[in-house]
Amino acid sequence: MTSCHIAEEHIQKVAIFGGTHGNELTGVFLVKHWLENGAEIQRTGLEVKPFITNPRAVKKCTRYIDCDLNRIFDLENLGKKMSEDLPYEVRRAQEINHLFGPKDSEDSYDIIFDLHNTTSNMGCTLILEDSRNNFLIQMFHYIKTSLAPLPCYVYLIEHPSLKYATTRSIAKYPVGIEVGPQPQGVLRADILDQMRKMIKHALDFIHHFNEGKEFPPCAIEVYKIIEKVDYPRDENGEIAAIIHPNLQDQDWKPLHPGDPMFLTLDGKTIPLGGDCTVYPVFVNEAAYYEKKEAFAKTTKLTLNAKSIRCCLH
């Protein structure tokens, strides 16, 4: 018999989150649709729960009410004593943790798909938090293969000092899905179709896995975050240069030392320094102006996964 890495157990509980950011409308629209008619997301033997994560922000069509829901799922915020004085999103995070967690427990949901849009030209993107997770690498390989020839990129946010504390991190297997470009507060049919297909293929993978299909060893190309880059700023902290036209919409493309990065209003080009080629992502993302992030630098690498098969009882 072929030796293989056996994944822990079959997958039982899956959640699909929309509206973690209330103005990213593809996930909101799909989740609302699936709450009314969820036939397309159901798979035999699998509990799939669509869920609106930040209903107040969705109602106002804004990213958040008090603070970013997708950055506060750490033990400090989840452990705060519940009171009306807490920011709305912290209270909501505790409610979500109660419903789908608790985080880092045996009772937490197996998989959470968190649906997002970006204003950046990132196409279909899967966000991975753990480079050693054979199950998710296999799932992402399946999704990428199923979507081809449509490109699907994998963004690895594993980093020693950049801690995200994402909404989906309460699950055993957290999956971020990011599709763009799409303006905030807008629905685009092409973007919706791409996100819908990503979810379909992900659920198909889980179904095949649960039925005992063995997935042979595989490898995927990923883009691992190195650092986030702020806009150049003046002495008052105001933005002093904008994304250069040569960099705009060039997510995932190589940016070499000396290539144009920013452009000042008086026409001066600010190039990339250093001696390493990087791959920019979230270029000129609207939501990241407040976070002082013009783009993120990534490096390209390959992740390998062992063969996996479900432990059938």
Rank of each mutant, 00 (worst) to 15 (best):
I96T: 07
R132V: 06
D190V: 07
S146F: 08
Y164Q: 15
I6V: 14
S105V: 10
E285H: 13
G22L: 08
H141P: 05
T277H: 04
D251H: 01
L303Y: 02
G27Y: 03
R233Y: 06
D107A: 12
L150P: 04
Q184V: 11
P149H: 02
K306D: 14
Y173L: 13
L203D: 05
K172I: 02
H313L: 09
W252Q: 02
R71K: 14
N121S: 08
H5M: 13
Y164P: 15
L147N: 05
E8C: 13
P181C: 02
K300G: 02
S83H: 13
T53L: 05
V90I: 14
D110N: 04
R309T: 08
D266C: 07
Q184E: 15
E47T: 13
I270S: 01
L272P: 01
V48C: 08
G176C: 15
P87K: 10
Q182S: 15
H159I: 07
A7H: 14
I41G: 05
F100P: 05
E235S: 11
R56Q: 13
K144R: 08
I41P: 02
T118A: 09
L126S: 05
I206N: 06
Q194E: 06
H21S: 10
D74C: 11
R233F: 06
D249F: 03
K228C: 08
C61E: 09
L162R: 15
V14Y: 05
I239L: 09
I127A: 06
V229Q: 10
A57H: 02
T145I: 10
A148R: 09
A305D: 05
E158P: 06
A93Q: 10
E293I: 15
S161A: 12
G45I: 04
I127T: 07
K163Q: 13
E95Q: 12
D66I: 01
N246Q: 12
E238N: 12
I112H: 03
L25N: 08
Y142C: 02
I127P: 01
S146G: 09
G45C: 03
E24G: 01
K213T: 12
T125R: 03
P216Q: 08
D110E: 07
P271M: 08
L35N: 09
K297L: 15
P271I: 07
L265M: 14
H116Q: 08
N97C: 11
N54H: 08
S161Y: 10
Y153K: 14
K49T: 14
D275A: 09
N37V: 04
L128R: 02
G180Q: 04
L150A: 11
L263M: 11
F282H: 15
I191M: 09
T118F: 02
P102N: 09
Y223S: 05
S169G: 12
H21P: 04
D110S: 00
G123N: 00
P151T: 07
L301I: 14
F209M: 00
H244T: 03
K59H: 11
G27V: 03
L156Q: 05
V90W: 10
G273W: 01
E95A: 11
L263S: 06
K253T: 07
S3K: 13
T166Y: 10
N304S: 13
V175H: 05
K59S: 13
A286R: 10
F140T: 01
F135S: 02
H33W: 07
G212W: 00
R309D: 00
K213H: 13
C4V: 12
A240I: 09
D130A: 00
N121C: 08
K306I: 07
V186F: 05
P254H: 01
Y88H: 10
V154E: 05
D85G: 13
F73Y: 10
E227W: 05
K228P: 08
H116N: 07
E214K: 08
L265N: 09
G185P: 04
K228E: 08
T62N: 12
A305E: 06
K60E: 13
T302S: 08
S307C: 08
S307G: 13
L192K: 05
T166Q: 11
F29A: 15
K13G: 01
A165R: 14
D85Y: 12
H116E: 02
T44H: 12
I239A: 07
C311N: 14
M198T: 11
W252H: 04
F17C: 10
T119P: 04
V48M: 01
Q138W: 06
E211L: 12
R309Q: 08
S105Y: 10
T298A: 14
C311G: 15
V179E: 03
G38Y: 10
K49R: 12
D107H: 13
R43H: 01
V48I: 11
A294N: 03
Y155L: 15
L272K: 01
L150T: 14
I239D: 04
T119D: 01
V186L: 10
P245M: 04
M198H: 04
S120Y: 04
A241T: 00
L150V: 14
L25H: 06
C61F: 10
G22Q: 09
P50Y: 04
L115F: 04
Q94C: 12
D234L: 08
D104P: 10
K172S: 06
R71N: 14
D74G: 12
K306G: 14
V58Y: 08
D204M: 00
T119C: 09
V229K: 03
K32I: 01
P50E: 05
K297F: 11
E285N: 13
A294D: 05
M122G: 01
P183M: 03
G185M: 05
I220R: 06
G176R: 15
D249Q: 02
G123T: 01
I112L: 08
L263E: 08
Y231L: 06
E227T: 05
T269N: 08
D230A: 13
T125E: 04
S108C: 14
P151M: 06
N121D: 00
E76H: 12
F29S: 15
T166M: 09
L272H: 15
I41N: 00
Q194N: 08
L263W: 07
K197L: 13
A15M: 02
T302V: 13
L136R: 04
Q250Y: 06
Q42A: 13
N304P: 09
H33F: 06
R71V: 10
W34E: 03
S131C: 09
S161D: 15
E238Y: 05
P102H: 09
I206M: 01
F295L: 06
K197T: 12
T299W: 07
K200I: 11
D230W: 08
L147M: 15
Y64C: 09
T26G: 15
D110W: 04
